[in-house]
């Protein structure tokens, strides 16, 4: 309980287990019950039970449960906090947990990365071509390393926790089906639409994801800053614009706290959203400066962009909120395995 309160704002001891949250949720179904069971596990200190549950990832935080909770126990925020805790749990390096729990550790890491990038620039004499070449290679290898060393092992750990350790005995066929819906959910998050009144939010999020992925492909694999191809250049502007416009909107709603899910923001939420904004914005500026021939005089803007990208790629992607992109999509698949296992169990019982 104490540990969990480091991951979010919790009044979960207030819960008297009426089951309202589970029943009011549009995403719960037979065999997939949350959030009350998670609160129970938390109150009783059943760490293993929580660690092996896939349910927290299935919640899209529409806020219905928190709004209607008769005890103001805030179950929606609990699910958010458990997701943060699970992110730390899956991460074999332990850094995710450290960054969630200690803001100073996170800031120190950010400063170190920034110093590293500036030092690199210093070594290369701030020669624009050399630095930009280095930056491009860095991005490329960064993605490769983060995936192979951090993210893939962490996904395997998640699989171990939620399927093997949870003793989910699903038939083989369901694994193949699970891969199919993994792809759909990773890129569309269609499940959000099952929640009440969440269409606008889903559209915002969908466009942001599309913008982000587009920008990633265009800068890293299509070399936006180096290309002469007009189509790629325009596509870059569009995707960069999408990213910073929608992150800006998200920042406003977090500040105004109009939606239930925006009422409690952790420092890590702010880092995630501000860095995403900065990434889109600085990328946009860099390309703009190239096009109007100002970059050589204002090379600092590229340095800023590279610092932001490196902090993003080295810290926020592997150890932060970014991982929900993977965990959520895999969770949908794992939950389907769980359902298949349940059906199989019922069939054998009958």
């Amino acid at each position: 309980m104490k540990e969990m309160s480091q991951y979010g704002m919790g009044t979960w001891n207030a819960c008297f287990h009426c089951g309202n949250c589970t029943a009011v949720c549009s995403l719960t179904e037979e065999g997939i019950l949350f959030p009350r069971k998670e609160i129970r596990a938390l109150q009783m200190g059943l760490e293993d039970k929580l660690a092996t549950s896939v349910e927290p990832w299935l919640c899209y935080y529409c806020g219905d449960c928190t709004e209607t909770c008769p005890r103001d126990a805030n179950p929606g925020e609990l699910m958010m906090s458990v997701r943060r805790w699970l992110t730390a749990k899956y991460d074999w390096t332990g850094l995710a947990g450290l960054f969630y729990k200690s803001l100073s550790a996170l800031i120190i890491a950010f400063v170190l990365v920034a110093i590293g990038i500036v030092a690199m620039g210093f070594v290369k004499d701030f020669n624009s071509e050399a630095v930009m070449y280095f930056g491009h290679i860095l991005e490329f290898y960064l993605i490769l390393t983060v995936f192979t060393i951090i993210l893939i092992p962490n996904i395997l750990r998640m699989f171990y926790f939620t399927v093997i350790k949870a003793k989910v005995n699903a038939p083989f066929g369901s694994y193949i089906a699970a891969i199919g819906n993994l792809i759909t959910h990773m890129f569309t998050q269609v499940k959000t639409l099952k929640c009440d009144k969440q269409t606008v939010r889903w559209l915002e999020h969908f466009l942001l994801v599309m913008g982000y992925l587009g920008l990633l492909v265009i800068t890293v694999f299509l070399d936006w800053f180096g290309t002469e191809n007009q189509i790629i250049i325009y596509m870059g502007y569009i995707t960069g614009g999408l990213v910073f416009v929608f992150t800006f909107l998200l920042m406003i709603s977090r500040l105004s706290k109009a939606r239930e899910l925006n009422k409690y923001s952790q420092p890590t939420d702010w880092f995630f959203i501000i860095w995403l904004f900065l990434m889109g914005f600085t990328a946009f500026l860099v390309r703009l400066f190239i096009d109007i021939d100002l970059l050589n005089d204002h090379f600092w803007i590229y340095m800023v962009h590279l610092i932001v990208v490196s902090q993003w790629g080295m810290l926020l992607v592997p150890f932060g909120k970014w991982t929900h992109f993977l965990y959520r999509s895999f969770a949908v698949s794992f939950a389907n395995l769980k359902k298949a296992a349940l059906i199989k169990k019922l069939a054998t019982a009958a």
């Binding site: 089951g19 309202n20 589970t22 029943a23 009011v24 037979e30 019950l33 209607t68």
Partner: peptide
């Protein structure tokens, strides 16, 4: 289990609750 919502379904009323003691929805 506290009932969370009531909706119309097939011309009847659908009552949605968690059956806590039987671990069911």
């Amino acid at each position: 289990g506290r009932t969370a919502k009531i909706e119309e379904r097939n011309g009847r009323l659908m009552v949605r609750s968690e059956d806590i003691l039987n671990d069911q929805l």
